[in-house]
Computed example of a mutant assay.
Amino acid sequence: MQIKVTDQAAQWFKQELDLNEGDYIRFFVRYGGSGPFHEGFSLGMNKEEPMDPAVIVNKDGCQYFIEERDVWFFNEHDLLVDYDEKSDGPIYRYD
């Protein structure tokens, strides 16, 4: 499993969450909404430091990660984090 963050998405995170070099963004499973693999669960994100990361990637000095306990949600797919101009926010795709 991998995390891929586009340049546009990384820029959005830096601006909207006031990220500095060395900051962390966690992608996590939350109850509610709808995901591509599990009805009633969706993906959330938060600015926080890792405790038990399963996967972590550095993009422009910031670290994006998924904790081991949330890996099940991705159903063995990679996570692509992109930017959506219409919603002016991140969009998640699963490869």
Rank of each mutant, 00 (worst) to 15 (best):
E49C: 05
Y94W: 14
M45P: 01
M1F: 06
W12L: 08
K59L: 11
G35C: 02
F27Q: 01
I56W: 06
Y92C: 07
S87N: 11
P90W: 09
F65T: 06
E67T: 04
L79Q: 05
E48R: 14
Y24F: 15
G35A: 05
L19P: 00
S87K: 13
N46Y: 04
L43E: 02
A9G: 04
D7S: 08
I66C: 13
Q15V: 09
Q63L: 15
L17Y: 15
V5F: 01
L17A: 05
M45T: 04
F41V: 08
S34M: 12
Y64S: 11
D84M: 06
D84C: 12
E21Q: 13
I25D: 00
S42C: 08
K59S: 13
Q2W: 04
F28M: 03
P90A: 14
P36S: 13
F13N: 00
G40F: 05
D52G: 06
I3N: 00
A10W: 00
E76Y: 12
E48V: 15
E76C: 09
R69V: 13
N58I: 10
I91P: 02
D7T: 01
Q15M: 11
F28S: 05
Y92S: 10
P36A: 10
A54R: 09
G35Y: 02
S87A: 10
D82L: 10
L19C: 03
F73G: 04
I91N: 10
W12Y: 13
F41W: 11
Y83Q: 07
V57M: 03
D88E: 14
V71D: 00
D78P: 02
W12I: 01
Y31V: 02
I3Y: 00
M51K: 13
L43Q: 03
K47V: 15
N58R: 13
G35D: 06
D78Q: 08
T6F: 01
